[in-house]
Amino acid sequence: MNHLSDFENTLYVSTPGQQFLKESAKWAKFLAIVGFVTTGLIVLAAVFAGSVFGSLAATAPELNFFPTAGITITYLILAGLYFFPCLYLLQWSQKLTLALQSGSSEDLTVAFEKLKSFFRFVGIMTLVILSLYALMLIFLVLGGGLALLGTGL
Rank of each mutant, 00 (worst) to 15 (best):
Q18L: 07
Y133A: 14
F36V: 09
L108M: 10
Q19F: 08
A49W: 03
F48G: 00
M125L: 09
T72A: 02
S5A: 10
L41I: 12
N2H: 14
F7A: 12
W27Y: 13
I73V: 15
A111Q: 04
W27F: 10
L135D: 13
S131A: 06
G50D: 00
L137Q: 11
S117A: 15
L135W: 10
K116V: 07
L78Y: 12
A69E: 05
L11V: 15
F66H: 05
L135K: 05
V13Q: 12
A25C: 08
V122D: 00
A111L: 08
L87C: 03
T68H: 00
Y75N: 02
M125K: 09
L81S: 11
F83G: 01
P85R: 06
Q18H: 13
M125T: 07
D107E: 13
L21V: 03
S51Q: 08
V43F: 01
F36K: 02
L132E: 10
L146E: 14
F139L: 05
R120T: 12
V47H: 07
T97D: 08
A69M: 06
K26Q: 12
A79D: 11
V52A: 00
A32S: 14
S14M: 09
S117Y: 11
P61C: 03
F119H: 09
G70H: 03
L142N: 14
P16W: 04
V34K: 04
A57E: 00
S105T: 15
G17C: 05
L44P: 07
Q101F: 09
P61H: 02
G150Q: 13
G145L: 13
L44K: 04
A45Q: 04
F83N: 02
Y88K: 11
N2A: 06
Q101I: 08
L44M: 12
K22N: 09
G144C: 08
S105E: 14
G80C: 02
T10D: 10
I77Q: 06
L81F: 15
K22L: 08
A58K: 15
Y88S: 08
G40F: 03
L11A: 13
A147Y: 10
K22C: 07
I124L: 09
A60D: 08
G35P: 00
G123T: 06
E62C: 14
T97P: 03
L56W: 11
E23M: 06
L41Y: 05
S131I: 09
T151F: 01
E62A: 15
S104M: 11
E113F: 12
P67V: 08
G40V: 04
T109H: 07
P61L: 01
I124C: 06
G150D: 14
A45W: 01
F139Q: 04
G50A: 01
I138V: 08
G143I: 03
L100Y: 12
V122G: 00
